[in-house]
Amino acid sequence: MAVAATPLHKQMSKRARRDMWTFFAFTGPTFILLAVFIFWPIFYSFYLSLFKWNMVSPRKTFLGLQNYKDMFSDDVFRLVVKNTLIMAFFTVVVKMAISLYLATQLNKKIRGSNFYRAIIFSPTFTANVAIAMVWAWIFEPTYGLMRSFLRPLGLPMIDWLKSTSHSLPAVIIVLIWSGIGYDMVLFLAALKNVPLEIYEAAIVDGASPFHVFWKITFPLISPTTFFLTITGFINVLKAFDIARIMTEGGPLNSSNVYVHYLYQNAFQWFRAGYASALALVLFLFIMIITLIQNRLSKSWVHY
């Protein structure tokens, strides 16, 4: 036995070694790119966040944790965080409520459902720049489409994008508009997975449709609801394009949001150190949300 085992063992290890090298050759490109452009930047961001640096000069001035301390005394930063959280909250809640309702309607056997779905989903694949462009024109105070919808309601003429009270709501409206389709399609997929027998049994038992929805359907699709809440929230934290093009964060930072402020600091004002501190805080915040998501989703799923 022992005599026979030695060559076999050697043969296996030779094969295992060859497999290992193939494995590294195949995954190598992906891992090298991830290391250079995703993992290393985290450490480099932290390093840069300890300095004052204008991105061009060879000299960096060491500041320690001053950039992080500055965030707490920066009024614009506080406003930007508030705007971002308001935007995330309203976008996610309104978008999901509407898309869940539309998904329940689309889940009924009706003609033309593919047509409805295709149109409602289409903003998902539309360039944000073009979306922002047409919505900026819709919000135009004198000739814009929004005015002609609001005037019959007796509402005054509003210059949405130039008003400190209306610029953020305008951005939120566009984010909701462009995000409904994606959430709706995922809700629809979840609804299709609910077995029909459950509904039939409930209806035989005399439950009202409203009751059936809240007591049966809603708990059964809760993993999707949870997934969309978390990913939707994170996506709004990362949003840049719409705010950049519609308002450039203005007026007076009333629609400035996190990544846009980061961009301004880094690439308009060349405050690379401060911007790196902003980036790192965003990273930690998203990391914490993701870890909570992983923890909760294990105890959340209903089957």
Binding site: A16, D19, M20, T22, F23, F26, T27, T30, F31, L34, F37, I38, F39, W40, P41, I42, Y44, S45, L48, M55, I234, K238, F240, V259, L262, Y263, A266, A272, A275, S276, A279, L280, L282, F283, I286, M287, T290
Partner: peptide
């Protein structure tokens, strides 16, 4: 491809998905 530490590397790759690209703008 069979390799002892395959699952570990798989997790490393998935971890990259959690890191928002916006954080890497300046280093990149």
């Amino acid at each position: 491809i069979r390799y002892k530490h395959r699952n570990f590397f798989f997790l490393v790759m998935l971890a990259a998905m959690m890191i928002p690209g916006q954080v890497a703008l300046i280093p990149n």
